[in-house]
Amino acid sequence: MHSDPEAIRKSVRQYFMIGAALFVCTGITVAVNQVHLAVPLAITVALIIASIKGSMVASVFMHLSHEKRWIYGALILTVLFFIVLMSVPMFTVGDSIGTPIGAANASHSQPPER
């Protein structure tokens, strides 16, 4: 991997650039928040920016851009089950008897009057 000094010096420059990019992205996500977008749009934008930042950390700082098969394999498996853990309980809670999945979510999107 990074064994010769020249390659490491090169990646050091990269680390500082990624650090700067992360600062900028954090600034952007806070700035977007000040605009007060509609909630679904705001969630989408914030999560997209967070995912970009996260993948920068993972691929550069954690060297995931060049890793070995076993680590990719274990992580792909984890991501699959992570998606299951995120989505299936939500679908199930949304799907109560007599309400198809879509309808249950729709009723949540408008806050009931209190």
Partner: peptide, 11 residues
């Protein structure tokens, strides 16, 4: 934390 920050503070 990169995910916690927007999820808790911004949204």
């Amino acid at each position: 934390w990169i995910f916690l920050f927007p999820v808790l503070y911004l949204l």
